Simulated assay, not measured.
Amino acid sequence: MHGLIVVLTMLALCTIVLAGELTGPAKVISTDTLEIHGTRVRLWGIDAPDKTQMCRDINGNLYQCGLRTASNLEGFIEDREVSCLSVLKDECGRTTATCSAHGTDLGEWLVRNGLVLDWTRYSGGRYHAAQREADRAGLGLWAGSFAVPWLYRACVRLGGGPARCSDDVNAHP
């Protein structure tokens, strides 16, 4: 019983809400992580290809989809001030938030352009309609084939190298 109380207490501490807003110039750290005033913030509700992940374009050519996503995000926010609301810690201890630049939700912008996926497990489907539109229009990842990011990471953790785990030509024909 004592062990259960300790576990429940630790879980409760993992979801403590931090200060409500973090605003300022942002640096893109990875495909789904920004840094504002020295604080790293993971964009809430999305799952993005890792920087090492490869995908195939509409012609079947390999490209670095994770690096392309990070580059597109960097280009979009450029010198804009980024505002992150509902800043909280996730179950892994990372700071997560819904962030926007000039009133545009960055998570939704990334999903709508086919650069990342709506992670329904966390977003509750908030970006599902935007993802469906990107898929139908063949934008970004949806133009070719890719391994979903969470399966890519699982494959790498099990000992597969980035080249072997990156692309599944049958994942999204």
Rank of each mutant, 00 (worst) to 15 (best):
G3Y: 02
L4A: 10
V7S: 10
V7K: 10
L8S: 15
T9W: 14
T9A: 15
L11P: 14
L11E: 11
L13A: 13
C14V: 00
T15R: 06
T15D: 03
V17E: 04
L22R: 02
P25K: 03
A26M: 13
A26S: 09
K27P: 08
K27H: 12
D32T: 05
D32G: 11
L34E: 02
L34K: 06
I36L: 06
H37M: 02
R42C: 05
L43G: 09
L43I: 11
W44S: 15
I46F: 10
I46H: 08
D47V: 01
D47G: 01
P49N: 06
D50L: 09
T52Y: 08
R56N: 02
D57H: 11
N59L: 13
G60V: 03
L62Q: 10
Y63C: 11
C65S: 05
L67R: 15
R68K: 14
R68V: 12
R68H: 09
A70E: 08
S71F: 09
N72G: 03
L73M: 07
I77S: 06
E78L: 15
C84F: 12
S86V: 00
K89E: 00
K89Q: 03
K89V: 00
E91L: 13
E91P: 07
G93E: 03
R94S: 05
T96W: 09
T98E: 15
T98S: 15
A101G: 13
H102D: 15
G103Y: 12
D105F: 09
E108D: 04
L110G: 00
R112D: 04
N113P: 03
G114R: 03
L115E: 02
D118M: 00
W119A: 07
T120F: 07
R121W: 13
Y122A: 02
R126H: 11
R126T: 13
Y127R: 04
A129P: 01
R132H: 10
R132A: 14
R132I: 07
E133S: 14
A134H: 05
D135V: 07
R136F: 04
R136C: 03
L139F: 13
A143K: 14
G144P: 07
S145G: 08
F146D: 08
A147S: 12
W150K: 12
L151P: 05
Y152Q: 10
A154Y: 15
V156P: 02
V156I: 07
R157Q: 09
G159C: 04
G161V: 04
P162Y: 02
P162R: 03
R164N: 10
D167T: 05
V169L: 13
N170F: 12
A171V: 01
A171E: 00
H172V: 01
